[in-house]
Design a protein around this nucleic acid. Structure first.
Lengths: 146, 146
DNA sequence: TTTACATGTAATAATATAAGTTACAGGTTG
DNA sequence: CAACCTGTAACTTATATTATTACATGTAAA
């Protein structure tokens, strides 16, 4: 199964806040860009707020970026939207047979291996910023308009 | 959400085939070690067979390894059990608004980024073999018996 | 202070996948 | 043919995601 689209939506939201920073980015406006409904946007925006990535408050229309674009990595977003609990990207079958050599050791053996792989993934996400994403979007846009 | 336990079960199966290579590894026997039911084991074993990792045939009791332990990486297992379709570890929201600068470019922008992260994950899985896993299991076992 | 409008959040339903289970067809061996 | 195993389909249960609706709460302007 794939990792939740909350992650890509979160990236979309942050990018939009920058690209449309002159406008008022209400959950309804963002929802139209993402093509989903406002309640889901508010939920994800709330997660981004809890992670300190955006400013958004009850009653006040629109969300804004809370950090510099270059200070927000995709890893920040990934962790903010709780796509994966820490150290739980890979599911490990529960309760293997303790009466079996493999059964009683497999979890302790593959756990650390999975952690290494997970960290490799996170590292790759950590070197890309929303600034990089926005630049690429604007570059593609320029190319399309030629 | 986590990646399916089919992956960890696949690793368990292959490790067990080595550790219990003197015995006959029927789906029922393996199921007891994994602590699940034989039908699921046969399903996963079938996937490992399709990937050329084990020998198993209708009517003949027991599965055996089809390759050297050191020639089977966790990436081979990962791909064999189809935990993730190629290039689809990360879900990307469908149909963002083409009338929006972000909406019409976001997919093409984050797709390649996600691929890089996915490859980093796969690379980490590719450097660990079932031989490494089995050695670690046996080492832990020795330590526990001291 | 009342009205208009936005966010926060709960509740629900629809959908998808995983995992457990049962059943049985088909292959193999003695 | 009998016993046993694998392959596989069908069904159930459990869980997570996503979409949707509804409404309480907060803010600001008239």
């Amino acid at each position: 199964m794939s990792i939740s689209t909350r992650f890509s939506v979160g990236i979309h939201i942050l990018s939009l806040l920058e690209v449309n920073k002159e406008g008022v980015n209400t959950s309804e406006f963002i929802a139209k860009s993402v093509n989903t409904n406002p309640a889901l946007i508010r939920k994800i925006t709330g997660m981004l707020r809890n992670a300190g990535l955006v400013n958004v408050r009850p009653g006040i229309a629109g969300a804004t970026l809370a950090k510099e674009l270059s200070d927000i990595t995709l890893l920040d977003v990934y962790q903010a939207v709780n796509v994966v609990q820490d150290k739980e990207l890979f599911g490990i079958h529960e309760q293997p047979n303790p009466a079996c050599t493999v059964g009683r050791n497999i979890q302790d053996t593959i756990g650390p291996i999975f952690s290494v792989a997970e960290l490799a993934l996170e590292k790759a996400l950590g070197v890309v910023t929303i600034e990089d994403v926005v630049k690429d979007i604007l570059e593609k846009e320029k190319f399309n308009n030629q």
